[in-house]
Computed example of a mutant assay.
Amino acid sequence: MQDRVLPLEGIHNFRDYGGYQARGGTLRKGVLWRSGQHVGATEADLETVQGLGIGTVIDLRGDSERAAYPCLRHPEFGAAVVFEPGETASLKGAAVHEEMAREVVSERDAVNAMTALYERLPFRPVLAGTYRLYLRTLAENDHPTLLHCLAGKDRTGVAAALVHTLLGVHHDDIVADYVLTNTAGDAEARIAAGATAVRSGFGARMEDGAVRVLMGVRPEFLETAFAAIRQQYGSVEAYAEQLLGAGPDAVRAMEANLVA
C-alpha cells in the first residue's frame, strides 16, 4: 500500500487510489490521485505533481478554506480546478474534523464526534455539489485527476470510496485505501500539525488519543457514512443518481475511462 504514496515534503497524504480490481477489470494507475491541501508545497513537490499530467483538480474545501490555505501551483500549471462555491464545513476556514473538535476531551469524545460527522457528511449541500462535479469529471474525461480537501481524509475519503463502490471495487480494498491515511507519508508530522491547530482553537485539555482520532480515520467512520447513504437512498447507486446526478450512463462512462 505504501507504494501508492508519493513521498512529498510539503503535501500530506498524496497518493494513487487506482490500481484496484474493479467490475470488468482493474482501475487504471496514475489517473486517480488524492491528497491534502498544497499550501506548504515545496518547489520539488510542485515539479513532481506537475509531472503527473493532472488535467482537473477537484477541490472539496469551502471558500474560506481556499482563502486561508491557497494551494501553491507550478508555474506551468494548467489544470481546471472545479468546486461548488460555498462552505463544505460549518466552521469557516477549518476542515470538517476541526469543526467536530469543540467539546472533545477524551478519545471516546472524539470517536463520537467523528461518527456524528460522517452520518451527515454525504448530504451537505455544497459538498454534494462538488461531489457532483467530481463524478461528472470522471465520466467526461480520461485524463489524470486530483481529489483533495484540507487534510485529504474525510471529505476526500468518502468521495474516493464512493467512486470505488460505484466501480465495483471490493469492500476490503475500499477500506484499506481509506485507512491508508493513517500511515501515508509522514503521518506523525501531519498529526503534530493537527494537534497544534485543534488545541489552539479548542483548548489545551484535549488528550493525545483524542487528537489522533481527529487527525486519523477509522473504518467505522466510513461505514457510518455509507450506512447513512443506504438508509436515506436505499443504495449507493441511488444516492449517486438522485443527489449527485450520476446515473447508470455516467457510471458506464466512468468505467470506460477508468477501468482497463
Rank of each mutant, 00 (worst) to 15 (best):
R73N: 06
V49N: 01
H74K: 11
H74D: 06
G53Q: 06
D59R: 06
C71W: 10
Q50G: 07
V82F: 11
G51F: 06
G55N: 06
R108G: 05
T56L: 08
R61S: 07
P70F: 05
R108T: 03
V111F: 09
G86I: 01
F83C: 14
R102G: 14
D63P: 05
T56R: 14
H74P: 10
Y69W: 12
A67Y: 04
A89Y: 04
R102K: 15
T56E: 07
E84H: 07
H74Y: 04
D63S: 10
T88Q: 08
G55L: 07
L52R: 03
P70L: 08
R73E: 12
E84Q: 15
D109P: 02
F77Y: 13
E99L: 09
S90D: 11
S90Y: 01
F83H: 14
E107G: 11
L52P: 02
E84M: 14
E87L: 08
R102W: 13
E65L: 06
T56I: 12
R102N: 11
T48N: 02
P70K: 05
E99N: 08
E98N: 04
S106K: 06
Q50C: 07
A79I: 00
Q50P: 02
L72H: 04
V49F: 05
T88K: 09
A101V: 09
L72I: 00
T48E: 09
H74V: 03
S90R: 13
V104K: 07
F83S: 15
G86W: 03
V49G: 01
L91Y: 10
S106T: 15
V81P: 04
A95H: 07
L60W: 03
E103D: 15
V96P: 08
H97T: 03
V81S: 15
P85V: 02
Y69R: 13
V57F: 11
N112L: 05
V111T: 00
P70V: 01
V82R: 15
V82W: 08
L60A: 03
T56P: 08
V49T: 00
V81M: 13
E84K: 08
H97N: 15
L52K: 02
C71P: 02
A94S: 14
E87F: 03
D59P: 11
E87T: 00
